[in-house]
Simulated assay, not measured.
Amino acid sequence: MSRIGKLPVAIPAGVKVAVDGNTVKVEGPKGKLEKTFNAAASFVVEDNEIKVSPADSTRFANSMYGTARSIVANMVQGVVEGYSKDLEINGVGFGANLKGKVLNLKLGFSHDIDYEVPEGVTITMDGSTKLKVSGIDKHMVGQAAASIKKFAPAEPYKGKGVRIVGEHVIRKEGKSV
């Protein structure tokens, strides 16, 4: 049995949760989220709490209801507080520009990279080398940050590239003569 799955998810004031079969809809001050889960987990809303339990006693249901509970908790936190990731771009001549919903990245290639910002995610810039990816869906924010980072991950010799703030990049020693 999952220790995480057993814990109920508290519903803060100002948040509405509706369960329709395996679909959970969460609405709060920052927006609305909806997710359809596998039939292995069942959801019950009572006393300002969401309780998740396995739908049956199969091994798959026991392994999935903890994950479903974590996703529902992230949905509730997202509509109340939101999520964000900070990115920094390091390197001579490296930078970014935001033009509407298109992020133009200069990452040392012969051409610029245009990244179209997905729906539900906002990117703000502080200068040309600091980005803030934010939104209410934890998965979408993380995916957008990872997609931007994937264009030029920080390399180990000079540290040039895109990294998430706080991420440790293992540095290597250069050539020794």
Rank of each mutant, 00 (worst) to 15 (best):
M1S: 10
S2T: 05
I4R: 15
I4L: 09
G5W: 10
G5A: 11
K6N: 05
L7R: 06
L7E: 04
P8T: 10
V9L: 14
A10E: 07
I11V: 05
V15C: 10
K16H: 13
V17E: 01
V17Y: 02
V19N: 06
V19Y: 06
D20R: 15
G21Q: 02
G21V: 03
N22R: 09
V24R: 13
K25H: 13
V26D: 04
V26E: 02
V26F: 01
P29A: 08
P29T: 14
K32C: 13
E34H: 10
T36G: 01
F37Q: 02
N38L: 13
A39V: 07
A40F: 15
A40S: 13
S42D: 06
V44A: 06
E46N: 12
E46L: 15
E49P: 01
V52K: 04
A55P: 09
S57A: 09
S57I: 12
S57G: 12
T58F: 10
F60P: 00
Y65Q: 01
T67I: 14
A68V: 02
A68R: 02
S70T: 09
S70A: 13
S70D: 15
V72Y: 05
V72K: 06
A73R: 15
M75P: 09
Q77M: 15
G78Y: 08
G78D: 04
V80I: 02
V80L: 03
G82M: 09
G82P: 06
Y83T: 04
Y83D: 00
D86M: 02
D86S: 05
L87A: 04
L87I: 06
L87P: 01
E88H: 08
E88P: 04
E88R: 11
E88Q: 12
I89T: 02
I89C: 01
N90P: 03
N90K: 14
V92A: 11
G93M: 14
F94N: 14
F94H: 12
G95E: 08
L98N: 10
G100P: 06
G100N: 07
V102C: 00
N104G: 13
L105R: 00
L105W: 09
K106G: 10
F109H: 08
F109V: 09
S110T: 14
S110I: 11
H111G: 12
I113D: 03
D114F: 15
Y115K: 01
E116F: 15
V117H: 02
G120Q: 00
V121H: 00
T122P: 06
T122R: 14
T122V: 15
T124C: 07
T124H: 05
T124Y: 08
M125H: 03
M125L: 02
M125Y: 02
D126Y: 13
S128Y: 11
S128K: 10
K130P: 06
K130L: 06
L131W: 01
V133T: 03
V133E: 00
V133A: 04
G135V: 05
I136D: 04
D137P: 05
K138S: 15
H139K: 05
V141F: 10
Q143K: 10
F151G: 07
A152Y: 05
A152T: 02
A152P: 02
P153S: 08
A154L: 04
A154F: 04
E155K: 10
P156G: 00
G159S: 00
G161E: 06
V162E: 07
I164H: 09
I164W: 13
G166E: 11
G166S: 10
V169G: 03
V169H: 04
I170N: 14
I170S: 10
R171V: 08
R171A: 13
K172P: 11
G174S: 07
K175T: 12
V177I: 14
V177A: 11
